[in-house]
């Protein structure tokens, strides 16, 4: 039970952090130099939360016998890692669409973890 609530908490924090990224990118491109630093710090926070989320999802998998949060979180973390390096290397053709997709994925995941009841699935039913 606790593990499910932890996952909900981490996913919620992840959602808030990931929404900051386009905001900071916009601030930067408006000509505010500090926007880039905020976007870079934001990227560190977002990816860190992503890895925490994978850990929380593993616990949910073990304790609650629900594997989908792990699979989805792993997908998001892979995307965010690619995103991180695409941003650092200025590969904007990849960075922009992947960024939009990552935000969309975190939103879907947020809805899913809050919609699903935090219960242990009966063995053999999964």
């Amino acid at each position: 039970m606790v593990s499910g609530w932890v996952l909900r908490g981490v996913v919620s924090a992840h959602l808030v952090a990931v929404f900051g990224q386009p905001v900071f990118a916009g601030v930067y491109l408006s000509g505010d130099f500090d926007g880039l630093r905020m976007h870079a710090v934001g990227a560190d926070i977002v990816t860190s939360l992503g890895y925490l989320q994978v850990i929380a999802a593993v616990v949910v998998w073990v304790r609650l016998r629900q594997v989908w949060p792990f699979v989805a979180s792993l997908g998001v973390v892979v995307a965010e890692t690619v995103q991180y390096f695409a941003g650092q290397d200025g590969v904007l053709w990849l960075h922009l669409p992947l960024g939009v997709m990552t935000v969309a994925a975190v939103v879907v995941l947020f809805i899913a973890v809050w919609r699903q009841p935090v219960v242990r699935r009966e063995v053999g039913h999964a």
Partner: peptide
């Protein structure tokens, strides 16, 4: 949809910019 989006970005964009 995600794959389609990324591959069209790769195909349509100027690489290098």
């Amino acid at each position: 949809v995600a794959l389609g989006g990324l591959s069209s970005a790769a195909a349509l964009s100027r690489r290098p910019a």
